[in-house]
Simulated assay, not measured.
Amino acid sequence: MSESIIGKKSFDFAILIVNFYKSFITEKKEFVLSKQLLRSGTSIGANVREALNAQSRQDFIHKLSISQKECDETIYWIELLFATKYISKEEFDKLSNPAIEILKILRSIIITTKNKNS
C-alpha cells in the first residue's frame, strides 16, 4: 500500500513545528504564541490521519476540512510571529512555505472529493 502524500507532508510538518517549538521556547522564552503554533501545527497531521481512516466519504471531507482550518490557523500564527519580529524572514519561510503547500493540497483533495460526490 502506498503512503499518502498529505499524510507524509503533514507528519513531516508536525516534526518541523515540534522542533521549532522546542528551540523557540528555549531561545526566546515566548510561551503563549508558540504554544498556539504547536497545537495547530501538530493538529493538521492528526486530523489528516483521522481522515485517512474515515468511515465514509463525508467523514473524510469533514476531517480534512478540520485539518484545513488548523493549517490556516497555523499560517496565521506564523505570520503573527513574523510581524511581531519574534522570527526572522528565514524562519518565516522555513515554516510558512510547507504550511502553504499543505493547505493547497488539502483544499485540492477536498474539492476533488466533493466533486466526486456530485
Results as ranks from 00 to 15, higher is better:
residue 59 D to L: 12
residue 106 L to D: 00
residue 61 I to S: 08
residue 49 R to N: 13
residue 55 Q to D: 10
residue 86 Y to E: 05
residue 60 F to D: 01
residue 77 W to C: 00
residue 109 I to L: 14
residue 112 T to S: 12
residue 30 E to T: 05
residue 11 F to Q: 04
residue 15 I to D: 03
residue 54 A to T: 09
residue 56 S to K: 10
residue 100 I to V: 15
residue 57 R to H: 01
residue 84 T to P: 01
residue 98 P to R: 15
residue 18 V to L: 11
residue 52 L to G: 05
residue 78 I to W: 00
residue 63 K to Q: 07
residue 67 S to I: 08
residue 28 K to Y: 11
residue 107 R to G: 15
residue 102 I to A: 02
residue 24 F to A: 12
residue 51 A to F: 04
residue 86 Y to S: 03
residue 104 K to D: 09
residue 31 F to G: 14
residue 39 R to G: 07
residue 110 I to L: 06
residue 101 E to V: 14
residue 45 G to A: 10
residue 51 A to S: 12
residue 92 F to Y: 15
residue 68 Q to S: 13
residue 111 I to L: 07
residue 99 A to T: 02
residue 67 S to F: 05
residue 103 L to K: 14
residue 70 E to N: 10
residue 107 R to I: 10
residue 14 A to H: 01
residue 45 G to T: 05
residue 46 A to Y: 08
residue 87 I to W: 01
residue 33 L to E: 09
residue 18 V to M: 10
residue 53 N to L: 11
residue 82 F to D: 03
residue 77 W to L: 00
residue 114 K to H: 08
residue 33 L to D: 07
residue 94 K to M: 11
residue 98 P to Y: 13
residue 70 E to G: 03
residue 69 K to S: 07
residue 46 A to T: 02
residue 64 L to V: 07
residue 109 I to R: 06
residue 47 N to A: 10
residue 67 S to L: 05
residue 107 R to Q: 13
residue 38 L to A: 14
residue 93 D to G: 08
residue 28 K to G: 11
residue 87 I to G: 00
residue 106 L to C: 01
residue 61 I to C: 11
residue 53 N to D: 13
residue 78 I to F: 04
residue 72 D to R: 14
residue 105 I to A: 11
residue 55 Q to K: 12
residue 103 L to N: 15
residue 43 S to F: 06
residue 16 L to Y: 00
residue 17 I to W: 01
residue 36 Q to D: 08
residue 48 V to N: 00
residue 113 T to H: 09
residue 52 L to A: 05
residue 90 E to Q: 14
residue 48 V to E: 00
residue 69 K to A: 10
residue 74 T to H: 09
residue 104 K to C: 06
residue 33 L to S: 13
residue 78 I to A: 01
residue 54 A to H: 07
residue 50 E to T: 06
residue 74 T to A: 14
residue 51 A to E: 01
residue 23 S to V: 12
